[in-house]
Simulated assay, not measured.
Amino acid sequence: MLDQFLWVIFPYLAIATFVIGHIFRYRYDQFSWTAKSSEFIEQKQLKWGSLLFHLGVIPVFFGHVVGLLVPAAWLSAIGVDDHLYHLGAVYVGSIFGIMTLVGMFLLTYRRLSKPSVLKLSSASDITVNLLLLFIVFIGCYATLVTNTTTPDFDYRATISVWIRGLLMLRPEAALMETVPLTFKLHVLAGFAIFMMWPFTRLVHVWSVPLNYGTRSYILYRKHSTR
């Protein structure tokens, strides 16, 4: 029953909350759809933390998409064998993962150590920062340490197959039985952040200013008192 809850019920509950929560907040609470920037309070740590986090998390995200959603046979068919995939996933992925971890650490340290920033932070802001830091840390640990100490484990034959079955409404909780604890924690924490997403500042991810580069300039003219 615990496996069914962790690997079937909880993921579907998180996905449903993610979708329905976004729809509800967009329709009834658009005025709070903001990143609540605290740049005017402190800029240096925010600059480097945000830069490292965003430059790292985007490649990490697409790496997860490929690793989890694209079957190994498909990659092999286009010439990406297991050795080449391993080099990209472990070595290149680790570089961007560590970059994301350092950025997230700076952002979390800034939020908790700067009294003015902490005062403006809500409980959800702090929770999101700590949970994201944990997700990135345990992900890096699983990639760099667990993969080395358990060479027989292949997440593409377990976690990837499980997640694809989950999305196709054919979940198999048994696939997660042999998965190492660090990977399990990474997966569960990931679904937890998806569940919290619609009710936190993370919604600002969907408000990408795509028209920023093409919009008209705002003109400021000096007012004459004469």
Rank of each mutant, 00 (worst) to 15 (best):
L51T: 08
L52P: 00
H54Q: 06
H54L: 08
H54K: 07
H54C: 09
L55E: 03
L55M: 09
L55R: 04
P59A: 08
F62D: 11
F62L: 14
G63K: 04
G63C: 10
H64K: 01
V66K: 04
V66I: 15
V66A: 12
V66W: 02
G67A: 08
G67R: 03
L68Q: 02
V70M: 06
P71Y: 07
A72P: 03
W74H: 06
W74M: 12
W74S: 12
L75G: 07
S76K: 11
A77S: 15
A77D: 14
I78W: 05
I78S: 08
G79H: 04
V80I: 15
D81I: 11
D82H: 13
L84W: 01
L84T: 08
H86M: 10
G88R: 02
G88F: 01
G88V: 06
G88Q: 05
V90W: 02
Y91A: 13
I95E: 01
G97P: 00
G97W: 00
I98H: 00
I98V: 11
M99E: 08
M99Q: 09
T100H: 03
V102K: 03
G103C: 05
G103M: 02
L106I: 12
L107Y: 01
L107C: 03
T108I: 13
R111G: 02
L112T: 08
L112V: 13
L112Y: 05
L112R: 07
S113G: 10
K114Y: 07
K114M: 12
P115I: 05
P115V: 07
V117H: 02
L118A: 11
L118H: 11
S121F: 00
A123P: 10
D125C: 14
V128S: 09
L131M: 12
L132P: 04
L133Q: 06
L133D: 05
L133K: 05
F134D: 05
F134L: 15
F134Q: 06
I135F: 02
V136D: 03
V136P: 01
F137W: 10
F137A: 15
F137I: 13
G139V: 10
C140E: 11
C140W: 01
C140N: 13
C140Y: 02
Y141I: 05
Y141A: 03
A142P: 00
T143L: 12
V145F: 05
V145I: 13
T146R: 02
N147T: 11
N147G: 15
T150E: 09
T150V: 14
P151A: 10
F153T: 06
F153L: 09
D154M: 14
D154I: 14
D154P: 10
R156M: 10
R156H: 07
A157F: 14
A157D: 15
I159C: 05
S160Q: 09
